[in-house]
Design a protein around this nucleic acid. Sequence first.
DNA 1: ATTCGGACGGCC
DNA 2: GCCGTCCGAATT
Length: 639
Amino acid sequence: MIAQVYVDVGVPHLDRPFDYLVPEEWHERARAGTRVKVRFSGRSLPGFIVGLADESDVDTLVPLSAIVSDEVVMPASSVALIRAVADHCAGAFMDVARLAIPPRAARAEAATMGEVESSPRESQPCPIDLYPAGTALRTALRSGASPRVTWTVAGVCGPAGDWADGLAGLIGDTLASGRSAILVVPDARDVQTARAAVTRVVEPAHVVTLSADKGPQARYRAFLAGARGHARVVIGTRATVYAPVHDLGLIAVWEEADSSLAEPHFPYPSLRDVVAIRASQTRAAVVFASYSRSTEIQNWVDKAWLHEVAMPSGQASYGAPLVRIASQVDRSLDRDPAAHTSRLPHDAFTVIQKGVASGPVLVWVPWVGHRRNFLCPRCGEVARCSCGGGFEERSSGAVCCQVCARPAAGWRCSCGSTRWWAVTTGSARTADELATSFRTIPVLRSDSTHPVDGVGAEPCIVISTPGCEPHAEGGYAAAVILDASGFLSRPDIRVGEEAVRRWMSVMPLVRSGRDGGTVLIVGPPQDRAVQAVVRQDPAGFARRELQDRQEAGFPPSTRMATFTGDEAALTNAATQLTGYGYVELIGPVQEIDSDDFRLIARVPANRGEDFARHLGEMAAKRSQGKKSGTYTWRLDPVW
DNA sequence: ATTCGGACGGCC
DNA sequence: GCCGTCCGAATT
């Protein structure tokens, strides 16, 4: 008996299974999908059995060293998925396996979990039914079909805006057809929200949560529950997309564009692409849900790979807050800086004042901390410390250098001015300002270091940074989005997309316009992202954004790879890339403030798979042969 | 003749 | 990646 084993060798050119002899006494235990230890080139390495055979092409075989565990953690469907994902992003099988299969925790295997008899629940009202084509989607899932949709969740404080209840309903429908479901969300907090919603629809014993925050043992236990077929629904963070559940019928993703869903480890497979690969391999249904829409999802809509589930444009704002724009105060240099210590236009004060009369008010600020980026008010020069660092304000109110901590007191601009003002104001400073202006109202702060989970219906002002907005009971009376232009001027090609995503997710936290709910955006009125939010039209925004990308030759209409390293190595890489047709090279050019060079290669999107294969071969050759210089590379970088 | 080192290729 | 082998140059 021969076991075909993928061994964790760690070199790209050995990315294939190796044959090992299964000793007689293990013939029963050696199953495809189990963890093993094998001797490889003199050392003992971990691996997975991916197949069994009666014979091998290799004449002198070495026996398996050990079967680490009897659990089938990598069934054939996982092997196919991992292989396809590795090929897609030019990585090795074992690189992807490391992301897909959690480390073993022996104690979790001992715990047995009895199978729970499933009692299919009756179809119940679900937010999806409020959408055109929503009921048809549910019927399709219940009948065992596998539709693929992007659900643009309406930004309303009410059932239609409840993403978790909506996805829970779709999961219930999938289970009713005898299939299982996977739900991927950005973080542990969303896992809990989703779990609460799903267990209202599905027997809680069938639902497990898979995330790293409860420790390796809990993570492996949830993974095993899926692999053993005990769990019918697995809810978790990004690696959950690989969970080997039985009879997969639906892969749902909440907020696919959130940066925590981007895989930070080589070969950086994007969650979105893994979903597409898995869905096509298993013929599972797909739901991407969000209050907004990324260009990649729009691209799939255009290619008819995804269908849209959204409120018709006239109805999208029904139940949504009233959204208005207030232009930011013009801080012309001839004015006295003291008049501009606040970036709050009068309009914002009015909205907050009116809001706190009837409930909580959310103030959205893009940055944490106090004040940064000081300018000379007379000549506009950036105020810099003698060491070259910029100044920042501390919580004590002292302004110091960000680099050497020297106090800014005594700073003098080249024009002679000794005054400065801040361009960037963070949430802490904003909280201080508002506490001064609204002395009788509690002012709270919520940011990633100290998140506030939720607030009651009583009047208060909540200053929040992106993604940390607490839920308010009954909805906020008003929300003010500050410094939109600052947020939009970050040097990132996705700023517009990210702004729409962040601001659209504020909408469902605020009461309906009929109940006086108001959102005021302090920012550039003509900006496309601001306009998209005012008109509650994230899909239209995504269409135009995608069009811009196509015209610029940027993903998703192309696939790109970046190479960083010394010039000789990159020249070498460029030669190898030129040998491959279709590729357009930019560089190598020297990076700013570094000895390194950078080379960008891009191909039309339809050459992507072929390009990935070529990059994989380049990596294999590099690890095998003599290396001339060093470089790092990445396919599909996140810009 | 002997030893050392670095390059190369195989690893089941 | 690591280890073994093979060849050439340097050393005795």
